[in-house]
Every structure is written in C-alpha cells, then in structure tokens.
Simulated assay, not measured.
Amino acid sequence: MAPDPIPFDRDRLVAMTGLDYLHAMLAGEVSPPPIWAVMGLRLVRVEPGAVTFHAAPCREHGNVTGTIHGGWYGTLLDAAMGCAVMTTVPVGATHATLEYKVNVTRVVRPGLQVEAVGRVQHGGRRTGVAMGEVRGLADGKLYATGSTTCIVLEG
C-alpha cells in the first residue's frame, strides 16, 4: 500500500527532476493538482518526453449548448502537454504554460473514456514545446489535438 500522498511542496518539486516528481505523483507519493479531480483527469503513464492521462467528462463539464465545454478539452490537453514538458525539466527548475492551442475535432459525450497523450517536440533550457492528442479509449477516434509552448523557470 502506498503511503498517504504528500500535499504540494515547492521545495520538494525543485529538489527533483520533473520526471522524478511525476513518477512520485504516479506512485501516489505526491498529491496531484486539485483541478485534476475537478475535471476527472487521471495520470496513468509517465516516461521521458511523454505522459498519458485518462479522463471522462461529466454532465457538470457541459456548456450552454449541452456539449462538453471547450475548457475541459483545454485543461486535459494543457495537463498532458505541460506534464510532457515537465519530464524534461531539471532539478532546481519548474515550468509554466506560455500559450496553448486546442482543436476539437469531435464531441466527447459525458462518460466517454478518453486518453490524452502529450509528447515533447523540444525540451530546451528555457522553453519546451509539446503536442497532444485526445482519443477515445474504446474507438480510437481523434477527439482533439493541441500544441503548447512552456517556459522553464529556474528555482
């Protein structure tokens, strides 16, 4: 049984590589950001330059037209792409999203299980660039794509 997750601790974050921190989160040793629970996101795989999330929107993630709000797709892709960049961040640094773009190609209905994969295209000393895709777990269909640029921040 994994120990109780440790709440966010900036000192612990900068004392580890981004990859090690995400592995600790995946192991349940570090608590994920609260927004992930609100949005129904679950980190399921971490490797150098790539991360995978599983998610399923709820009715509460809907918008005025009864479909899933674009912010849900944005949050899912920002998490996947940003965490992919985080895997390249060294000890003593963090990162932040500078900009991201999302293209919704197909509507995700409430309860549909999807997988979001973020992959680094460039992991530099000052910036990271990543792409992301959201696909249905059961049907493999493409539901959304995204791209991001992150800044790497020292200590």
Rank of each mutant, 00 (worst) to 15 (best):
W72S: 05
T88V: 00
T52S: 08
R125C: 09
R42T: 15
A130M: 12
A79F: 01
T145Y: 01
T148I: 15
A96N: 13
A50V: 09
A93L: 00
V104P: 06
L77F: 14
R126E: 09
A15Y: 03
G123I: 04
A50D: 05
H95N: 13
V114I: 14
P5T: 03
D4I: 15
G155D: 11
L26C: 06
N63K: 00
V107G: 15
R42K: 07
G71K: 06
E133H: 07
V102A: 10
F8V: 12
A2K: 14
P5N: 11
A84C: 02
M81A: 09
L77T: 07
E154A: 11
G28K: 05
P48H: 12
T97L: 05
K141Q: 14
H23C: 10
V38E: 12
A80E: 06
T67E: 00
A27H: 04
E47I: 06
G118R: 04
A80G: 05
R45P: 00
V51M: 12
Y100W: 07
P90S: 01
P57Q: 09
M16A: 11
L153Y: 02
E99K: 03
Q113Y: 04
P90V: 05
A79K: 01
G82M: 13
A56D: 05
A93E: 01
T94E: 07
V46S: 04
L112S: 14
V14D: 05
T52F: 03
W72Y: 15
A96V: 10
